[in-house]
Nucleic acid binder design. Sequence first.
DNA 1: CAACCTCTAATTTTT
DNA 2: TTAGAGGTTG
Length: 647
Amino acid sequence: MNEEQLTAVLHEQGPALVVAGPGSGKTRVLTHRVAWLLSQDVRPDSIMLVTFTKKAAQEMISRVQQLSYRGAAVVAGTFHHIAYIFLRRYVSSLPDLYSKSFTIIDQGDQEKLFKLVIQSLIDQEDRRLIPKPKDFVRIVSYMHSTQMSLLDVVREEFPNYIRQMDRINSVVNGYKERKIQGNMMDFSDLLTYFLILLRDTSAGIEIKNQIDHVLVDEYQDVNALQEKIIRELSGTCKSLMVVGDDAQSIYSFRGGSAEFMLDFEDQYQSVTKYFLTKNYRSRPSILRLVNASIEYNEEQIEKQLESLRPEGDLPIVTVTSNSREQAAYVISKIQEYNESGIPFDEIAILYRARWNSLEFEKACVNSGIRYDIRGGIRFFERSHIKDVTALVTIFVNPREILQWNRILSMLSGVGEITASKIVQKIQSKSNPLTAFLTLGRNDFSSMSISSIAISSIISLQRLFTELAELDENHSGLTQINPMRFLSLCLEFLEPIHQMKFPDEDEFRERWNDVREFMSFSDRYDSLDNLLADILTMVNISTRTSKLDDKDRPIVLSTVHQAKGLEWQVVFVTWLNQGVFPHSMSLAEDNLEEERRLFYVACTRAKDFLHLTFSEYARSWQNSEGVSQFIEEIMDENVFQIFGNDIW
DNA sequence: CAACCTCTAATTTTT
DNA sequence: TTAGAGGTTG
Ligand SMILES: Nc1ncnc2c1ncn2[C@@H]1O[C@H](COP(=O)(O)OP(=O)(O)OP(=O)(O)O)[C@@H](O)[C@H]1O
């Protein structure tokens, strides 16, 4: 700890703001502050440590645990995770009728629910007049995160639907009703209900009594809703410390804005402000490059940042002719670095969009390098994995109709219609799972269900009965051991998936994922914790290739998920105009945010930074040339070029 | 009414 | 390169 850092760590009381550039030890200040508080005999569960992404949260938590053995009991994690924990404890205080077994729905399920609502409320021919399910999801989450009204969101983001407000209102209301009926919350609900809990209920008083010290990392990314939560807690806590860097604000798409940080001093009384001006992470050569780049942003405030590290190599820009070559180049460089003694897990490949990982994954597999991928196709959103989690969800929250639909229509002989008949029949019952298990011949014939369908449904009943029997000492279905639960599920699913994915290689690949999920579940002792963590805490990611398990994996990650992390060697890839910066962002006038994203990406590097670009992106996508982020700083002598000279 | 086939449109970022 | 929509068959 240097002196600047130490004074921040030892901050006594009231609100504190730490604004500082990358690698200056902001996260370190927070983690050491937690350790210091603990050493002062502050109760761990009175400390709340918050951040935005799952990965950054894990990193922060593990740093705290290294510093103090009492760290494990600190209330720490993403906003959503912390909200979930308190909601679990106090659901019954909510004004809407949720029960403790509520489950969280992800984006895909939100879309499905909107689809159901639209089908039931809007006539076929009117459906083209209103937003698509996907857009509804965006509208609703934007509404929550910016705390704007539905009308304002539509006016601002989807002005061409403004004349359909009545229909839009009824769909949004229907969506909310169905969520409550199904005991489901979406991600926005977690935060919104948490705020309600804090603000309007007696449970809120208890929570506020519990929490004395609040620490928020990456504060430049808070949105209006999260800001309200923090403000609500700040009224009663002893200290509040927020840290951030306006140049790293990259979540405007979910309402995040650095304004909340820049206004912090005006919004809170007697704010203590701390500055950290020494960069411990990156070589001066790397800082020169990012500083030259961020200069182009007019909105950024200037920060002093002095590198404490010795001079390093100039960052290297490499031009390749296509994306396969790009991947081959990166992988061969990685092997060189590894041979020179840098461990694989100190090397990362970063990119703008999730699909950008594809060629790198292939190249890793071909060369037998293990990799840990964050943001390819998301593991838990792959359809075969969702089939498994659907079964778990039904046992945790039997009212969750989306998962019933999913499981039922997966059975042979059962399609959309039969599935919805059954769901209709059981959903209004107090326990739909028991209702399902007691369906018999008479029920099936009264619903006129085909005999093939009946026999599959009976086999599902048998599975559910066996699963329920795993709850031997009747401590509740959610308490069943996940590993045992899943191994029965897998037996049931295997033949179904074999049919669904007739291509043998494809099946094998997907089934490997499923097995991986099962072994992942072993670290959990109950189904509800498993489910919640999937959505608010962890990502499964490591893909092992057959060779040397002793090697640590390299990291493939989107820039967003790399936030707050660092590696000795970083490759920032796909620097094509239209990809990074992304054309859709450019269309929305977000160039400066894209440049901040580039800034975040490059400042992850400690020692070596590579920027790569391939002339031809994809056959059907015309190449728009090299990213302007490289072109802009061409004449500044902040990098060296390898490969074809295309300028 | 489910299953199978064919064509098309879409591929930003996270919880 | 792939999911899902839409149309046809059985
Ligand atoms: N006083 C110090 N002595 C030694 N190492 C330090 C010191 N302060 C910070 N570091 C190291 O510098 C690196 C960056 O620190 P940290 O991740 O806390 O920075 P940050 O400001 O949160 O960065 P970012 O804004 O990029 O997330 C870490 O490896 C950390 O251990």
